[in-house]
Amino acid sequence: MSLVLHHQDLSKLITELSEKWPVYGPKKERNEHEVRLELLTSAKNLSLNNSSSIVPPKKFLFPAKEVLILFEKNKLKKPAQTELILLGLNRKDAEGLFCLDKLMTTPLLDDHYAEKREKVHLIVIDSLAPSNNLNCDLYLQRVDQEHYLVFPFGGFGGKIAKSKLFSHDGDVGTISTRHLPDNVIYHPRLDEIVENSRDHPVWDRLAETCFNCGICSYVCPLCYCYETEDNFEITSNIEKDCKGCRNRAWDSCMLPDFNKVTFHNFRPKMKDRIYNWYYHKFVRMPREYGFPGCNGCGRCITACPAKINYREVLKELIKDEQK
């Protein structure tokens, strides 16, 4: 006997949870193709068909702009974080978060990220079975039109799995869906191939097409480079209370001033910045963390205004390497 949730009860589950915590999930509102992770109170407009949100779930842990430190006179403090549930992520996005967790907490700990992460609970919904690369609280495997198999993890997952909406009476079959291995980003020698490709003509070609807008970084679940800026609150008085904050905001290694210091730009050429983007994702990160900086979600492909497809770039490098 396995723990089961009926599809028609999913909406009730969301409502039940949203009474205690803010619940966010993939929602299509303006049109079918635009999915955003927004506040949910029911399953209305919930998008579970594997189409990915414009911005990945990293926005809850590593948003476009957030307060890192608050200050007032000579006192600093960290901002308070709110507890929330992220519901309806597919397995790929959840695996992306798992990787982001590793990136932000090892080898050295970004404690700001860790404090936020602790307050974010994950409910994954996918037709695939749960994998090892997950850091979720509840996994709902869609096994047929009517049913989800329920896998709770840890204390929080156990707690919410106690809901009366879940039942043990189901005897449901499982659809066997196989995850096809990605032979591009998991190509066994991809790191070497990219590493040795610095003289490949593709980089010159990209430097002539890429706008350097950085969109590929903003929408990437595994891009995490950032900029910080200090702001002084204009409504405070510099001599009396001197209130302000240090913000952390998205950056992109594609941007022209990314490596600029006062007297020198250490990566002035577009070609070098583009190469660095691939090098980080497919060479440095696999060697440092054991996984590539890409989970194949395809957001950068859909979002690139210059229509650059990194998979085509990698395929070209792989093909030319075999020559």
Binding site: L108, D110, C225, Y226, V261, R284
Partner: peptide
Amino acid sequence: LERRMKCGIGKCQHCTCGDRYVCL
């Protein structure tokens, strides 16, 4: 080496230099 740095803990990516982090 000197590079632009924001974090000091190998996250912000500003100080990477080829296969190395200047901060780590």
